[in-house]
Design a protein around this nucleic acid. Structure first.
Lengths: 339, 339
DNA sequence: CTGAAAGCGCTAACAG
DNA sequence: CTGTTAGCGCTTTCAG
């Protein structure tokens, strides 16, 4: 067997015609005689001819590749997003190239370099927690590569964004806690340079003040992982006036808090109600299962991919950035007490 | 600003030299005068020149892309594998292209076509549950593209494999159940055309017979998802002689069984011990947390990626296939009673 | 030390 | 209806 894959030339040679004729025959060009077309198509099928995407990319200056940079793949939310992206992309004829930043700014910049080299047609990014400078993203745009940010977006770079309605989600969650009678609500929050964290905290505060509940700043702490919840929850419970509810910035943190509350002998939801954010498997599987906000990761992936495909096909880098907001939905489960 | 990215030609033109000189200068060719080199490198940096990977791919017939086909990204195990793959790949200078089969044979074949078209250098596959015919994978190989299967491997196609030691894992799990005194052990199993499912069941059977415990075939049922566990667990518990332990083929199934057992009023682990397979977040978060087998998804990804990179660099399709086995580790948690 | 030319696979303008 | 040519960006002989 010959090495390498079949090319248009191989077919041309076999049939004693020119490469361009083969090319035209394969795309059913009206100029070509049906006899030639038949012969070409038959041989192409027989030999399993597959157009060389690399050659096409070079010729058309279009790779049909969408690059994706995410902090961590191993994360229910992010893998859902990728799943959504892959879905839209494959339907639109694009392939998806994945890069992990591992929450490192350094790595994220390398990823961007690789993306530039690869000449991807568009890029989808959820920023690393470390990232504060955005010039590498600007470089993509300067090179005519459209970007859509999702979830962890840039506040200073004017850009296309697809985000969760963090504010409304947090607001709804906290309002729910208030409605079921909670008064001292703690908030386990993420670093405040993330827009997402800001908005969730804003939602928390606004819900509290709407219902005229004083905010105890001691109940708002930075705590955004399963392990950190193990450390910090006991401290909260040890306060002179401990909380009667916890609103956590994400699912794993909520699960960690839940475990620690139970371990300390308190009952959920009788003594303390807990609400998380993001509806992954985790929230369904804890005992009691977690009241949480469905974040619709898959939808975010869909929307982000649709938007980037739009930008790519428009081919015009002079667009007005849009921000698409995906609504969250409050899912009430066992970790909050009934009204 | 010019549209498209900077090319070697742009630099050549600006400097009044030829493209080939620029090319050589950029790769520090000894023939080139240091003055020229300096000028070229300076301008390249100033203009943010990035070599066009597409052109390189075409020229070298090498894309530096590794294609990955997996059933579902949204799955702790698979996303861990991808993470491992991405890690190795990026270090070795490869990019990773992701395709989901969504457990569909149809889709998997389309993925392979896309991979062929993309001229990826190598492919990593975990087969869909539906796949019984493997000619599409053979086509990859016939075109000189090496494949490494992981986790869900092909039994009839002789190929490189990276698998979990399912047999030993299952054996260890069941032996542990026996040691803590369980006698009637149920096995929630996956479809038997998957090698993985066969091996786990074999491990189950062998452990039982080693300890001379009779196997009740009514306690071996096909049940491999969270929802299915909701349906089938009550049936098991309603048997005249219900089980005193459950060994589930995966984590979510174990979690589903756990919930149903608790719901039926029985206590875990006092009345029934449960062991799962795969150590994802889920197993750590259930109450009690699940005794399970760490499947080392990340390691599988590492190994698979290392192997494919090896095959690619060897560039010889005439190799003796190897099967690498990643050991599982039994993690004992609260869902099994102490000895 | 540098340049011109050819070729990776494909297509589109141009020319019969 | 079909072939020739040129070019996408890059490297690598071969010539100077």
């Amino acid at each position: 067997m010959r090495s390498g894959q079949i090319t248009i030339k191989d077919i041309a040679k076999e049939l004693g015609i020119s490469a361009s004729t083969v090319s035209r025959a394969l795309k059913d060009h009206p100029d070509i005689s049906s006899k030639t077309k038949e012969a070409v198509n038959e041989l192409a099928k027989k030999w399993h001819y597959k157009p060389n995407a690399v050659a096409l990319s070079l010729r058309n200056s279009k790779t049909n590749i969408i690059g994706v940079i995410i902090p961590e793949i191993v994360h229910h939310f992010f893998s859902s997003v990728i799943s959504g992206i892959e879905d839209v992309a494959s339907k639109a004829g694009y392939n998806v190239m994945i890069f992990q930043s591992n929450e490192s700014y350094e790595r994220e910049m390398e990823n961007v370099q690789a993306l530039l080299s690869s000449r991807v047609d568009g890029v989808l990014v959820s920023m690393s927690k470390e990232t504060k400078d955005h010039s590498h993203f600007r470089e993509l745009r300067d090179n005519g590569i459209p970007i859509v940010f999702f979830d962890r977006v840039c506040n200073d770079l004017s850009s296309d964004n697809v985000i969760v309605d963090d504010f409304a989600g947090a607001f709804a969650a906290v309002e729910h806690l208030i409605k079921i009678g909670c008064k001292r609500i703690a908030h386990l929050s993420a670093p405040q340079h993330l827009l997402l964290a800001q908005n969730r905290q804003k939602g928390f505060r606004q819900a509290m003040s709407k219902h005229k509940i004083p905010i105890d700043e001691n109940l708002i702490i930075k705590c955004d992982s399963f392990d950190e919840a193990f450390l910090k929850t006991p401290e909260l419970l040890a306060l002179p006036e401990p909380p009667d509810a916890i609103f956590a910035v994400n699912e794993l943190t909520a699960a960690g808090a839940l475990l620690m509350v139970k371990k300390s002998g308190l009952k959920v939801p009788e003594d303390i109600s807990i609400v998380g954010f993001t509806d992954g498997v985790v929230s369904r599987i804890t005992d009691p299962s977690l009241t949480t906000l469905e974040q619709h990761g898959f939808d975010i992936g869909l929307k982000a991919a649709e938007l980037i495909v739009e930008r790519i096909t428009a081919g015009d880098m002079d667009y007005e950035p849009v921000t698409k907001v995906v609504k969250t939905s409050l899912i009430v489960r066992g970790s909050t007490r009934p009204i």
